[in-house]
Structures are given as C-alpha cells and as structure tokens.
Design a protein around this nucleic acid. Structure first.
Lengths: 110, 110
DNA sequence: ACAAGACTTGAAAAAGTCTTCAATCCATCA
DNA sequence: TGATGGATTGAAGACTTTTTCAAGTCTTGT
C-alpha cells in the first residue's frame, strides 16, 4: 500500500501553492507553450521558471518534449482547469463575504 | 485593487497543502466538530491541532464558536468538499497512469 | 475559591521551500 | 568548429512553515 490519500492530497495542493506554478498551469490549460513563451508571460528569471517547471514535472502535472531548439510543455492533467476555476469561485465568494462584513461594520458603527 | 488572483489562488491552495488541514476539512465537511472530537480522529498533539486550526481560521476557511466548555468548528466554505473530491479523482487518475506505465515497462522489458 | 478539562498562545528549534548564481547541456547556424 | 539562443542543473543563502514546549485563558463542577 502507498501513502494515505489525505497526504497525497496535501502534496498535490502544495504543488499548486505557488503563484508562478498557478500561472504556468493556467497558460498550459489554454494551449501548449514553449519555455520561452512562458517566460514572456510570467515575470520570473529563466532558471527560476525551470525550477518551478521541474516541480510540476516531478508531480506529473506537466510533461515536456523537445522540439528542435526549444522545449514545449503540456498539461498532463486537464482536470486541473476545473480546480483553478473552482478556486476562483471560492475566492470571489470569500471576498464578497468579507466585503459584506465590512459593510456591516460601517452600518453598525457607533 | 487587491492581490492578483493567481496569487490569491496560490495562497488558497497552500492553505490546503497540509495533511492535518486536509483531515480537518474532510471531517468538518461531514459535520461540525468540537476540538476534542477532531483530536480523536487526527493523530497530532493538541497544540499542533490548534495551530493548524488557526491557519484555517486566518484564511476564513473555518469558523469557531464556543459552546460551554468546548469550542466547535464549522466549515465556512462548503465548496471545499468538491475540491477535495476533484483532487481525489485526479490523484487516482495519476496513479492509474503511473501503474499503466509500469505495466508497459514490464511488458516491454528486454 | 479552587481544581480540572478543553483549548489557545508565543516563542524557539527543526524542517522545508524559494530564489539566485554559475556552470552546463543541447541543437542550430555561420 | 565555434558561437549563439534556449533551457536545465546543483548548490548556497534567504525565507517560511511546521513542530514542540511551557505558560496561560475560559468554563464548569465541587
């Protein structure tokens, strides 16, 4: 038997827990990108990008192939797209709840 | 204007990126739990549990209320349940792909 | 008022992650 | 072959998170 599922889940979410990796996955969810294309979209140094790509590769969330002089990445888990959308929905919901609470504070003040 | 959305997403996923926090959310997704009840289910020291609950509270993923001598926690973002299910599906998919690849290795060997 | 159970806090040490740098690899083109 | 553009690697240092400990709060029952 392997690792408990709750631990695998934690590792999986931790992999998503970095702004550059989120950007990478969002871009790859649209279409495959060469590394230099990712580099144009994400404000980060080349070697840092490589390190983040390596993290995603190790967890099998992306795969790379060499195409002549460049390396092209694709997402290997398209379902991640749904996860990113779900997160967006939740975050917007939390932000709204927060704003409401702040309104209450103002309305209720004194 | 606030934080870029991709950064908020990363923070959100980082919050999910810990085994104890996953367990807590799974238990709270079922029903509210007092801290001592969580403690029975999760192999962790009381003060560590408190620290993890504090992380979830800071990010507004759970709320607590005192009920006499004990403190009861509830999930404030029920949609997290879907996220945990989606992660399970993805992980099972990845594990299967992995297993297939290993079969290939064996079949192809020599 | 005191003791006991339930929980939280702050702070220090341990463990883990992120960023950056220099070195390297690999394919193409002059 | 040597130079160039594109990408990766390993390792060091900075930074963050996790764990643990001792001390403290709050509520109930005696």
């Amino acid at each position: 038997m392997g690792v408990p599922l709750y631990q695998a889940k934690a590792e999986f979410f931790r992999t998503l827990g970095h702004p550059a990796r989120i950007r990478i996955l969002e871009l790859l969810a649209e279409r495959d990108h060469a590394v230099h294309e990712l580099l144009e979209q994400i404000a980060i140094e080349p070697s840092n990008l490589s390190q983040q790509l390596a993290v995603l590769r190790r967890t099998s969330m992306v795969v790379s192939r060499r195409q002549g002089g460049q390396v092209v990445y694709s997402i290997s888990v398209p379902e991640v797209r749904d996860l990113l959308l779900a997160a967006r929905t939740i975050l917007v919901g939390l932000a709204e709840a927060q704003a409401e609470f702040e309104d209450d504070l103002i309305v209720t003040r004194d």
